[in-house]
Write a protein that binds this DNA or RNA. Structure first.
Lengths: 205, 205
DNA sequence: TAAACAAATGAACACTGCGTTGATTATCTT
DNA sequence: AAGATAATCAACGCAGTGTTCATTTGTTTA
């Protein structure tokens, strides 16, 4: 299309991208120089600046690309009626995440970009829960403030994503969706078999 | 004690620390130069190097200080018998976190240090759940893999901490402990009032 | 309080990476 | 095949790094 049909550009951007991803994993994003990237990519340093303003721009463009893809998926999903309809939606999301595992794994890891952590969490809150869960909450029934509920779920699911990626995606998206569902619907302690019945605890305070 | 009883050192380290914290909040850690810090702290740049190897060392020392304090608290706690005994423990932790809110807020925020995120999450897993929760799990009862359970809970609680700090700690440690307890023991969806009874969902798959 | 010590300052050093430029070469599109 | 543009190469001033050394300032302790 309009955006850079020149094969040289495609090639250059691709090798920059992989060099970048690998180097983040090795040294971490901020210990990283443009020179590192161009050396690794076997590219003239000036060429880098033909495509990116600086290393932050490079990071941002890669992140945006990924985010846009995710938005594309999430926006096609209509709000669920029955709570179990979320399962295939979760599967779809994890399929997509799996396709970008390399980049995600590094960027969400300990040497990654915390602002991307925040961005992704925010997206999960907005597109998933505030559309699918929050509407079902009758305020008078909620036992905890809603913002904490949302943070709890968003972070928890975020943690599942991280664990899945870091362990090398051993489970299928279906398995993961099932795990998430059980944990959130039944409660982590119930799912663990620690608490036998929610009731046991309900009437305490 | 032995470590630097000279008042000049105390003073210098203190002003470096606050300048550092403020600057992280303003520009983010990696957009930050040693010169920025010393200028803000109204300190000779050479003085900085008298105390820290570089800005990463400064970050690490501050983080370690905080972590050690947390370990000190966690290690005095004996494993709980009844699951509700964790409540005062959670309270104690949040009291401590509250004392260091300024630093934590920035370092756990979008401009913070992702490796510290990981470190704190790991600590929570090890000291809290693997000591207090995991032993109670009978493997045959667990509906989900334990590593996912641990990730789920650790991240979820991590999210609560972040939300609490970012919103300016409006709730007391007691309130937060109660919120966490409800969410984890009853399950987030139950606590939200979305699911009426866990049973409703238990026998599906 | 005075002497001895240690911290903080200020100025200079070479070094590394940054972001940009202009001329030249290589590769692509039409 | 011709024209366009991407990539290269070498060079530039600039900013921040981490180190040094002589000097001044402050703190401790005898």
């Amino acid at each position: 299309m309009e955006s850079s049909r020149d094969r040289r550009v495609i090639r250059t951007k691709a090798i920059i991208r992989t060099a970048f991803t690998n180097l983040i994993e090795e040294k971490g994003f901020d210990a990283l120089t443009v020179k590192d990237i161009t050396t690794r990519a076997e590219i003239n340093r000036g060429t880098f600046y033909l495509h990116y303003r600086d290393k932050y721009d490079l990071l941002e463009q890669n992140e945006q690309e990924l985010i846009q893809g995710l938005i594309g998926i999430l926006s096609t999903m209509q709000p669920v009626i029955d709570i179990e309809q979320v399962l295939p939606q979760i599967v779809r999301v994890f399929e997509y995440l799996g396709e970008h595992a390399d980049f995600l794994k590094t960027i969400l890891g300990p040497k990654g970009d915390p602002s991307f952590h925040a961005l992704l969490r925010k997206m999960m809150s907005e597109h998933l829960f505030e559309k699918n869960v929050v509407p079902f909450i009758r305020k008078e029934n909620a036992l905890v403030p809603i913002n904490y509920l949302v943070s709890y779920i968003a972070s928890a699911h975020f943690g599942i994503i991280q664990e899945w990626l870091m362990q090398g995606r051993q489970e299928s998206p279906q398995e993961i969706a099932s795990i998430i569902f059980k944990l959130s619907a039944l409660g982590p302690l119930y799912a663990a078999g620690v608490v036998k019945d929610s009731k046991q605890v309900t009437d305490r305070r």
